[in-house]
Design a protein around this nucleic acid. Structure first.
Lengths: 346, 346
DNA sequence: CTGAAAGCGCTTACAG
DNA sequence: CTGAAAGCGCTTACAG
């Protein structure tokens, strides 16, 4: 079988012009039924498939979307890859993966731009918004996923974003914990400079403040498993212990629960309540049954795709879409206030 | 800023030919220091980046590798995406993601081929080997990841693969379990027709047979979490219970452990020993501490990339690389034979 | 509806 | 080392 079958080859066999071949493979182009049939037959026998690269070169649309991520340890992100990729595939787009740490960011950016991608989804907490701006300047739509552009005014105008309502989520967590009688509320932070982390913490703190309270303790887990273990140990290194901890995401919350129960011998939720954020599949696993704030990956992905389309169609205005979130109650927060129980086991 | 800066634009500004521009961006091409400097300066001021699509069209190398997967629920696969993507990026290649169920396989294939990818990594258990053959026929290198080509002789010659030593892994599990005094050994299968599952089971069964034993019970979990829960319930629906179960992968083993302990009130490893396969990060989590067979993602990815390069350089012979694996002992298998303990708690 | 022709942005012999 | 030119495989006005 000949390796690179071109439209020219098909045209020759079908005894039509190369244009005719191109037209039968271009949805909406005008070809007679007869020509189309001749072409299809020839294409079939030769095993012809249009060269997407050549097409992209001339149409100036690659139908490729770059997806930039920094790490997949947190199961939330694989979910995003899966849903985004599937959704985009259905619309004839494809996802080019870029895994990037902060230090390689510039190289990655150049590569992305070279591939003439139609859009970029940045789901990496560590990449600076300045990079997003560079892309936007190059005329490539950018949507920030699960983070918000930083306060630099320049960036704001050129970049869209989708996040869940992190602030409200943080508030809901504090409200729940307070209602259930927890009083010494700690916060286990993710990355200090991540907008997601900041919003969640701000919502949490605001409710505490409104109740005349303050965060009891605070440590940083850097969104990593081992970081969260370490932070949990610090949070509970001396009494009186916090009686509840809001962890900035599920991935870290699970690490925290293991330390609490297995290393420190504390009971969840009796001795200490734990709440996470994301609702990754593991949060529902029997050994954790984590009460957490649900971020709908589907909704966030839908919004992302919509935003991408808007920008690709030349919308000038960028938008920051905020997807609603809600708490799912499992077993890591007690159902009724019973502060005595909590105290009697420390 | 002008959006599409071309080599022509740079040439004009630098007062050199377009060829000169191309050469300074082609590693190894002969350009004088002086010309290169003029070009670089002009490129810098215009913000020029070579168009990878145009380059690919003429060099016939896209430097894109397609990665086909079916689902990312099992954390093993996100790890593969991460490592493979990073490794390939370092070599100037990029990963185009394809998430595909069995029924969309043909469509996916066509799209892959249209993008003129330089190679394909198939890490989907569900895609038939026939598809791999089609790609190989089209002259595109294919390497099967974590699976082996089926017995069709045609496929064998055109497709490489990398797996860990699943057969030996299965044997090691049976040997460990027997040595620790477990006698009623059950197998919780993944997908019946997956080569990975078959090999693991065959190794396991062979050792039992050599010891004059047979698998005590067997159920199928389809590599899914809920499937594994269901299968575990069936395995333990009537006494005498199995005293150990080898689960075809960690993802299912974790589901099984939760059912065993939380639903059935059995202790692991005292009442029942559990062994998995893969060593995903979750297997090491405190609540599971799963004893399992380690498949090195790094090693498998390295082998995959090597195989890809071989085939891209026109190697005619395909190879099936088998990466060694080993057992990591944690706490889901007891350390010493003590069959009495196991019996007294059923 | 159809074909000839121009052109997308590059690389690479070829001749100097 | 350098430039003019051909060509990668397509799409799309343009004229018929």
């Amino acid at each position: 079988m000949k390796l690179n079958v071109t439209a020219q080859d098909v045209a020759r066999l079908a005894r039509v012009s190369q244009s005719a071949v191109s037209r039968t493979f271009t949805p909406g182009a005008s070809v007679s039924e007869e020509t189309r049939n001749k072409v299809m037959l020839a294409a079939q026998t030769l095993g012809y498939r249009p060269n997407a690269l050549a097409r992209s070169l001339i149409t100036r649309r690659s139908r490729i979307i770059a997806l930039v991520m920094s790490y997949l340890e947190n199961q939330f992100y694989p979910l995003v890859i899966e849903k985004l990729s599937q959704k985009l595939q259905k619309q004839g787009y494809h996802v080019l993966m870029f895994i990037s740490d902060l230090d390689e960011a510039d190289a990655v950016l150049t590569e992305i731009l070279q591939y003439q991608v139609d859009g970029i989804v940045m789901a990496s907490t560590t990449l600076s918004t300045a990079l997003a701006k560079t892309c936007a300047d190059a005329g490539v739509p950018v949507v920030l996923f699960n983070r918000v552009p930083d306060t630099s005014a320049l960036a704001r105008h050129s970049t869209s974003s989708v996040t869940s309502n992190n602030y409200l989520g943080g508030r809901m967590v504090a409200e729940l914990l307070l209602e259930r009688g927890y009083r010494r509320l700690a916060f286990l932070a993710g990355l200090e400079n991540s907008s997601t982390n900041q919003e969640r913490e701000r919502g949490f703190n605001d409710v505490l403040e409104e109740a005349g309270l303050a965060p009891y303790r605070r440590e940083v887990g850097h969104y990593s498993f081992s970081g969260a273990q370490e932070a949990t140990r610090k949070l509970f290194c001396s009494g009186p212990y916090p009686d509840a901890v809001f962890v900035a995401n599920d991935h870290m919350a699970i690490a925290a629960m293991d330390v609490l129960r297995l290393e420190l011998g504390l009971r969840v939720p009796e001795d200490v309540g734990v709440v996470g954020f994301d609702d990754v599949p593991q949060a529902a696993w029997g050994s954790y049954r984590l009460t957490t704030v649900v971020q709908s990956v589907e909704d966030m992905v839908s919004a992302t795709v919509d935003l991408l389309h808007e920008q690709m169609q030349g919308e000038v205005n960028s938008r920051n879409v905020i997807v609603p979130c809600r708490i799912v109650e499992r077993d890591s927060v007690r159902l009724h206030p019973s502060p005595d129980t909590a105290k009697s086991h420390q």
